Simulated scan of single mutants.
Amino acid sequence: MSKSVLALGLDPVFADFSEFPELTPDLVKAFIDAQLERLRGMGHVVESCLVDAGETAEAVAAQHLQRGSFDCVMIGAGLRTPSLLLLFEKLINVVHERAPDAKICFNSTPADTAEAVMRWT
Rank of each mutant, 00 (worst) to 15 (best):
N93R: 15
A99N: 05
R40A: 04
V60W: 02
E55L: 12
Q63L: 12
C105N: 03
C49K: 05
A99Y: 04
G41W: 02
Q35V: 08
S48V: 06
L87Q: 04
V73K: 07
A99H: 05
R40N: 02
D71A: 04
H44I: 09
K90R: 15
A57K: 05
A59S: 13
A57P: 00
C72N: 05
A30S: 13
H64W: 07
E97P: 01
V95I: 13
L85N: 11
G76A: 05
V51N: 03
G54S: 04
A102N: 04
E89N: 14
E37H: 12
L84F: 01
Q66H: 12
A62K: 14
V51K: 01
L79E: 00
F70S: 03
S69N: 13
R67I: 03
L36Y: 04
A34H: 10
V45Y: 06
L84N: 03
V60Q: 09
A57N: 03
A77D: 09
P100W: 11
E47K: 14
Q35K: 10
N93M: 13
F70D: 03
E47R: 14
E89Y: 09
A99M: 06
P100Y: 09
K103E: 12
H96S: 15
P100V: 13
L27P: 03
A59H: 12
A77C: 13
V46W: 00
R67G: 02
L36D: 02
V95M: 03
L50Y: 07
R40P: 00
V51Y: 01
A57R: 05
C72S: 08
T81A: 12
H96L: 14
V94E: 06
C72F: 01
M74T: 15
A59N: 12
D71E: 06
Q63M: 12
H64G: 03
V46P: 01
G78H: 03
A77Y: 10
A59I: 12
K103L: 09
P82T: 14
K90M: 10
G76I: 06
R98Y: 12
L86F: 10
K90G: 03
A30V: 09
A34Y: 08
Q66V: 08
H44W: 06
E55T: 15
D52G: 06
R98E: 11
P100E: 10
A30N: 10
D101V: 14
E55W: 09
G68I: 09
A61T: 11
G43F: 05
D52L: 05
L39N: 01
C72A: 13
T81S: 11
R80N: 06
F88T: 12
R38I: 08
A59V: 14
I92C: 06
V94T: 14
G41R: 06
E58L: 10
A77M: 07
G43Q: 10
L50W: 05
P82G: 10
A59M: 11
L65D: 00
R80L: 06
A59G: 08
A53N: 15
V28S: 03
V94M: 10
T81N: 07
C105A: 08
I104G: 03
D26V: 14
Q63I: 12
L39K: 02
L86T: 15
L39R: 04
C49R: 05
C105S: 09
I32K: 07
V45D: 11
L79I: 05
M74Q: 14
G43W: 06
G43P: 00
L91G: 00
